[in-house]
Design a protein around this nucleic acid. Structure first.
Lengths: 206, 206, 206, 206
DNA sequence: TATGAATGAGCTTTCATTCAT
DNA sequence: CATGAATGAAAGCTCATTCAT
């Protein structure tokens, strides 16, 4: 995505395509973050982007595909950031703190994206009415957090506890930190993250 | 709502009225818990209750009022249960554990209510698209949890920490326990609650 | 449908319902006959009937159900008329002539209905794009015509021939008579029908 | 369409042009035959041909012109074939049989074309919703069939009858033979044609 | 009180057509 | 010549709400 066309000159087509998709996704993020998933109609997203309704239908198979694209982009950005920060950290306690602090760090600059992510997770349904992103979607997050806790238990850094419950609680603690901050912008996000890191460190240590 | 006035023996009106409202609220809870807020149209709720669509419009000013009534009733039931369990408990640690365990206890028999509550909290908006129940709605919960933590800090049971962050995290930990359990009914709710009580007890103790 | 409420007095509801359905079907017939199936949108049918678009959605599950109702009503009317005329006729030749002539007779007063019927037969598709009324729908007609030809062959009135080919041709000859007449109202329908009766009588006789 | 003019060696333009038009028409025929007129969008036809949507708009004034071109090409092919077979036949009875049999003969190898032709005849409308190809389009066919019947009556081969009715019926008999065969590919088309030839021969003979 | 018929706004999606490149 | 991005109208359908009975 960053450098694939130094030599040839015919990538402009897909470049335009890509730019439009990105523009539409960005508009969708802002609208969803502002008025919520349910009110975020294609018409509203298009109007916010200053384009015609049909453009979205042209570039995306439907509303669902657009929403999934939003999720993928936002999600990938978070994961990339956090993974980069955690690289090289070796102790379970260090990984635990780094995870919480780096997610918060990334949040600070991407409030709308995370708000939109939550909305889509909560509201997007398949044709049968079942959630598109349910607990199964969180499963990946839970697994990666569980790896941290398991490591700590095996190295003896952490006490015995149910790693799944800890992972679920950890995940929701971060979500609620974000939600609280979105609603009250004056709230000190970094301080909240440090408190959270302390909280979980104490909760797991021997 | 409880008035037995108006001349004499004609209290049957408001009794019928009350019964109808309760019936409609109960139907709404079940439908929302089953298919989610967005799909819970008045038609669906009416059909589920075996009554005409118009009845709802007759007894409630609109969909929003119905939803607020659902929230009030469910919310009150939880608060009553938890308050009863906490009565007589004196130590902060005891209150902390009792809160978590008694909420879980009540949850077990009222899965649908809590599911509906979450849906409404997340989805109900005012005419401008702003959430009807946002952080301000949780404020009351946060305050009551903060009282527990403040007590613990003043008695010396708890270490120093930001009581607001702790309250927010505590609240979300309970919510996520419920969400996880709703999605995976085989999950052991009571064990989860005990783990959570241990987690917070360790997180706050000196 | 004709007499079920001599005593009670609460059938007015379904009476209104029935009247509306009949009104909508009638409007659909006229619009389809005028502008064709494809152009016959629900909006157009509603406007022609002087009602709101939503009324149709209220009384019919969807466009398909409306179209099927049109087919059922028109089809039944034709079949009833022809069956009445053929009652008591005993020779195959008599039945053959009566069928052609009585269909034409009924046509004369129901031009629009038959035009609409043809449009729907040709255009209505299921969700996979397959014709809703295809050859299988005509099968019933073919079978009833075959019975006439079979009778004639078994009594010795008719020569040997392929009764399926004769039935298919017979059916299409009537359809084309109607189509021609619809396009050219000055065309003498009754004379056409007599010519057709002569044609088939000569084609099958020994 | 055949012009080799315009200075000298630059006829490749109109050659390419012609090839493209033929390619698009062929694709249109296949798509219409497969999914019907209504579902045969320009996008679908373009995709089937492996070209861009815009190409069609470039080579044809609009969808209507494309459809008319399809009709012209298919129609001409049939007429050419039948005319060739009828050349040299002298008796009216011979012409009658030859017409029916040669149309069927041509049909056998061009099922899709005829299916498409029927779809377009039935569905193509002008801006007012009136059929583009109605009875007036068939007029040419009727006239040519009438010439056969008139010949037979004037030579004394045929009995007196209304030649227009006979022509209309003859035309529809062939159409229905095709329709039946398209829907039931196992049907014996040639046998059907022979039955039809017998049927009309007997219907007209003295 | 209760009903269900009716409304009209709004939704997603499809499509023929236009146009800059 | 050809492309594909963009448009905007129109479609079927859902839904909260109103209203005469």
């Amino acid at each position: 995505m960053r450098s694939e066309n130094e030599s040839g000159g015919q990538t402009s087509r897909s470049f335009i395509e890509e730019a439009r998709r990105a523009q539409i996704v960005a508009s969708a993020v802002e609208v969803i973050a502002d008025v919520g998933f349910v009110q975020a109609s294609l018409a509203r997203i298009a109007k916010h982007a200053g384009i015609s309704k049909g453009v979205i239908s042209y570039h995306f198979a439907g509303k669902d595909e657009l929403m999934e694209e939003v999720v993928n982009r936002v999600y990938t950005a978070i994961a990339d950031h956090v993974a980069a920060r955690m690289e090289g950290v070796e102790t379970a306690t260090g990984l635990l703190r780094t995870h919480i602090l780096s997610v918060a760090e990334h949040m600070r600059g991407h409030r709308a994206q995370l708000r939109a992510l939550g909305e889509i997770f909560y509201n997007l349904r398949d044709s049968e009415g079942k959630p598109r992103y349910g607990v199964d979607t969180n499963e990946e997050i839970y697994r990666s957090l569980e790896r941290i806790y398991q490591l700590g238990q095996s190295t003896g850094e952490f006490r015995p506890f149910d790693i799944r419950v800890m992972a679920v609680t950890h995940s929701s603690a971060i979500d609620s930190m974000f939600t609280y901050w979105v609603a009250r912008p004056e709230h000190d996000l970094d301080a909240h993250a440090v408190e959270l890191a302390d909280l979980f460190e104490r909760a797991v240590k021997k």
